[in-house]
Nucleic acid binder design. Structure first.
Lengths: 203, 203
DNA sequence: ATAGAATTTGGTTGATCGTTCAAGTAAGAT
DNA sequence: ATCTTACTTGAACGATCAACCAAATTCTAT
């Protein structure tokens, strides 16, 4: 985060990405933010019209970070479609452990915090969720022949995200990965049952 | 919320329960809170040592509200154990609809917002979650004979909470019950598969 | 009736909030 | 060389923040 190695705007977004994640939007003060980014308040308002404008930029930034930060690392060493889905979840498990079970999904946190009146922000959060869902959906698409014919892939992919977000939330308040692990294990069982339900393909 | 009909302390907790739910902890100012409760700041600090002290009282209050507000209404007209579980989820569906898809679980919101350093608050949140899980677990216990022998009832009950919290979160950002409905439908399918997996009882 | 505790009053504190501004520097175009 | 645009500087703004206080009032027990 050295001052010369990145543009002022980028430093602001990077600082905000961290602080909004760790302390929330309302919980992050401009002074903290400006100090972390090493930027003066005047410069801030040259690039953004308000703190909310910065929030939008952060959420747009996440759209481009999903693949390189979440999906690609998970897919790197895994070929089987279903295992790729669970590799994404393993990635979140590592985040939970790396933060001493204090991890919260930055998007999930903002989804619950940001005022519903703030439509642009919520649209961006929903688009981020949608990108996540579509990455999972691609895996499910690849295993479609093994799944029951009537399976709604969109609904199933949404379900995976739901389980991840809920699992992360509980692990945070319990200060333990166990709730997350339990949820993932149940999801694993759900897929196992789906794959053995004997209604696959055109049956 | 008339001034004479309830004690000052109760009015403060009730106002905080609403505001922490709607605007979050950091997003709720003392002036808003005091105005809503119709209490002077001096009286506040007679009953609570700080805003965080009030938060703890609110979280303790939720412990006693779980049964009368969430569990009992759901169980009232439903006898079958599994349907009771889903009746709880229907209750949340109604909350989502009643708030124009802006509903967020008050505990889930605080679980993601409150500083992890605030151990007492997080312990209370976890205890609230645990109460919820145990209510579901009681239902699962009643249907144990129908479930596969090895089924971990605690894990399964936790899973139900995870799906609820994740579903509520997505429905808020999508401004639609659909993600919640999808998640519940998948959970329903999960139970259907479990009940038909042919490994039930002592097999 | 009266002492003492419990509660209420509402103004006040200093700090911090997000934002604005006028003045200044740096760099490229003409 | 001069004009223009882009960006930086950091002090200052009014508003609001959580918290505190001494004084006034109401309740409770004797």
């Amino acid at each position: 985060m050295s001052k010369s190695s990145s543009s002022t705007r980028d430093r602001l977004i990077e600082a905000a990405r961290f602080l909004f994640w760790e302390r929330g939007f309302a919980g992050t003060s401009m002074s903290e933010l400006l100090a972390r980014a090493d930027v003066n308040s005047g410069s801030f308002y040259h690039f953004f019209d308000s703190k909310e404008g910065l929030l939008r930029a952060v959420l747009e930034g996440y759209l481009h970070l999903l693949r390189p930060m979440v999906v690609d690392p998970a897919f790197a060493n895994v070929r089987q479609p279903l295992e790729r889905v669970f590799a994404i979840l393993v990635g979140y498990r590592e985040r939970i452990l790396a933060t001493g079970c204090q991890y919260g999904c930055p998007l999930g946190r903002l989804a619950l915090e940001i005022d519903p009146e703030n439509a642009p922000a919520h649209e961006l959060i929903a688009r981020n969720f949608q990108g996540w869902i579509e990455a999972v959906r691609e895996c499910l698409e690849a295993m479609k022949p093994s799944l029951p014919t009537k399976t709604d892939l969109d609904a199933l992919a949404t379900y995976v995200l739901v389980v991840m977000e809920g699992g992360v939330m509980l692990s945070r308040s319990y200060r333990s990965v166990e709730p997350f692990d339990r949820a993932v294990a149940q999801l694993r069982e759900h897929f196992r049952l789906l794959l053995h339900s004997g209604q696959r393909n055109q049956s």
